[in-house]
Design a protein around this nucleic acid. Structure first.
Lengths: 147, 147
DNA sequence: TTAACTGCAAATGCTTTGCATCGAT
DNA sequence: ATCGATGCAAAGCATTTGCAGTTAA
């Protein structure tokens, strides 16, 4: 909890420094993304934050998430045509169910094994990486075999 | 080339076996995906195949790609809200430019390093995996620094 | 022959945008 | 007081769907 508070204060400071305004909507959206253990969609963030800010608009949620993504403070994960947002700092692998589209985090610090030379050869500057394992979650395996 | 022909014949055989009809459209779409060294979008496949089949519809392209994906014969990679399709067999990492959305293949057989136990613990059955490295391609680095 | 497939056009659903108003600085 | 941010509604765009006509088997 304190960790999340510290993190959101750090981001707030950064926003101010870079000339962004600290609106209550932005703070609430940021808080929601950081707090959630799962990977919320814009819609879910909207519904959740709306409880405190009934006048919030979905467009603002999208605009804020876009900004935070641009700053690298949240990551975007597209599953089945829907974007999910994750505020976790250390990159970790995601298990993605191809049937129900659930996303499961693996709490492992994946040191990705792409050799530096391969990137350097192509003049590519890596910013972050992402490991996705696609398959069937437990429940979907059961439901598939039952059919 | 022969490799591609063999591959498409193998897929054709599989389709027939599983009760799908082998229409000229399907064969042409399959061919196009297998032949292309890049990661075509549905739109690009449509334009390309349309040269030979002017009566082809985009809906058929989507339906066919969806079917092939379901069979695991092609993989889907979503970048910036657009799906790209890749018929390559061995899974390899992708470098994705966050600015221009170019996709670069790395011809490395990535043995992904997600420990089996982590999957087993969660009852997750892995089907395939995907490594994405997000960053800036050479050209976009130059254009960014110039600005 | 007949059930699956195609093509068309309309519909869907997520995301973005334009613009008048509001509010953080 | 300024200019960026918000909220609303409309627009945008990739993808899906319904259906009548077509065709592979």
């Amino acid at each position: 909890m304190t960790e999340i508070k510290e993190r959101s204060e750090r981001v707030a400071r950064r926003l101010r420094m870079e000339g962004y305004r600290l609106t209550p909507q932005r703070m609430a959206i940021l808080q929601a993304v950081l707090e959630s253990p799962s990977h919320l969609t814009a819609e879910e963030i909207y519904r959740q934050v709306s409880a405190d800010f009934p006048m919030l608009s979905l467009a603002t949620v999208y605009k804020t998430l876009h900004m935070l993504k641009g700053l690298g403070e949240v990551m975007e994960l597209t599953v089945d045509g829907r974007s999910h947002y994750d505020g976790d700092a250390p990159p970790h692998p995601h298990l993605i169910c191809v049937r129900c589209h659930t996303i499961i985090d693996l709490p492992l610090e994946m040191a990705v094994t792409v050799p530096e030379e391969a990137l350097a050869e192509r003049g590519f500057r890596a910013l972050w990486h992402q490991v996705e394992v696609h398959g069937l979650c437990r429940q979907c395996q059961e439901e598939t075999s039952r059919a």
